[in-house]
Amino acid sequence: MTATQVWAQTDRAGDGRRRPPVRGVSPVLEVPFTEDGAVDVPGFRRVVDYVLGTGVSSVMFPGFASEFHKLSEAERAELTAVLLAETGPRPEVAAIVAVQDHATRLAVARARAVVEGGADAVNLLPPHFLAPSRRSLVAHVRAVLEAIAPTPVVLQYAPTETGTSLDGETLAAIAREHTNLALVKVESSPPGPLIAELAAGEPALPAVEGYAGVQLPDAFRRGAVGTQPGCSFTEIYVEIWRRFAEGDEAGGEELHRRLLPYISYWMLDTELIIAAEKLISVRRGLFASAYCREPGHRLDREEIRMIDRFLAEFADLLPTLT
């Protein structure tokens, strides 16, 4: 039985909606490269194995943290196949495969292909090049939802990266006609107000927060059902979420306060946190090279020292990986 079939049988609401495909921490997988810039496929397989070993219930690929915009179609297909081969036999974990195509025709085709390939859910990033109209954005989203129904879709709202503007009522209107709009990934700054608006809408739409978890405590208090950060220090996010979910709000706040100086700096620029997370993974022994495809951020000496301070501070939660 697949993860999608498990959801179809559990937590079913009266309006035909099912439990969303993300609960708790759902890391976005990074892509390691060799020093000469080639995709490190064995390294990616280790990334998948490591993340699944932290006890998460879902993973997402490829996202901004995966440098999806720097992968060829062949590389993307190969890595997606690696991921689905690992998650396919595991009904307890969901593989959420992303669709970021700007042409609606291409987005529909890719969404169908990844579902046929075994994806449990689709993460949909709406088009944003050349500032498409609100009407065309909604039409794009509806076309993908209809093409792969009843497969769950996570709609990614990332206005900082894309400039796209969508409000709670627009999203609720889409959800009223497409019950497979299962979740919204809210990466506005701050995410809390939209998360609360979605939860209070008709129908109520669950949400996860992204953006490296900078606003995770507020998002949790406002009803977020999960968080979708990068993956190089998944254990910290799992522990923060565990504390909040078990009612230890003070403990969750305390651990998040320790993490916040690092993630708030790294999230000043998307390429910066990609570079930082890769070096963290190398320092932990997950793969060999912290190479990022150009154009990217090159860590300076103080940023490297910051990463080493981070690893020392959280050594109890971040064991060396072999």
Rank of each mutant, 00 (worst) to 15 (best):
I195G: 08
L198S: 07
I273E: 09
A245I: 05
S189P: 00
L205K: 01
L259V: 07
H178M: 05
L259N: 06
L194W: 05
V208H: 06
A200Q: 14
E197M: 11
T179R: 15
G252C: 08
E235F: 01
G192E: 14
G251D: 06
P206H: 10
Y265G: 00
D269H: 15
I240N: 02
D218R: 15
V186G: 03
T179P: 12
G252H: 05
L268M: 13
I240Y: 01
G230M: 03
E254T: 13
G247S: 08
A182N: 07
L272Q: 07
A207P: 05
M267N: 14
L171S: 02
E235R: 12
A250C: 00
L216S: 10
V208M: 08
T227F: 03
P193Y: 11
A173W: 10
G168K: 06
H256C: 06
E249T: 13
P193F: 09
S188Y: 10
L255N: 05
Y265W: 10
E187H: 12
T234I: 01
L198W: 05
W266V: 04
I240L: 05
A182W: 04
Q215M: 13
A196C: 01
E209N: 15
F220S: 02
A207W: 02
I273Q: 11
L171D: 02
A245M: 06
T170R: 03
D218G: 15
E235D: 03
Y265D: 10
A207T: 07
A175H: 06
V208P: 07
P261N: 08
E254W: 07
A200E: 14
E177C: 00
I274Q: 07
F233T: 01
D218S: 15
Q215G: 11
Y237S: 02
A199T: 01
I236P: 02
E187K: 12
S232T: 10
P203T: 04
P261F: 05
V186E: 06
T170W: 00
P190F: 08
L181D: 11
P191E: 04
A224M: 11
V184G: 04
I236H: 01
A172M: 00
A219P: 01
I240V: 13
L272E: 03
Y262T: 05
G201T: 08
Q215I: 00
A199L: 15
P203C: 10
N180T: 09
P261I: 07
E239M: 04
L181W: 12
H256Q: 14
W241A: 11
A204I: 00
L255W: 10
F244G: 02
W241D: 11
P217E: 13
Y262I: 04
A196N: 07
N180F: 11
Y262D: 03
A245H: 12
A204D: 01
P206Q: 08
C231D: 14
A207G: 07
A224H: 11
I174A: 07
F244R: 02
W266R: 06
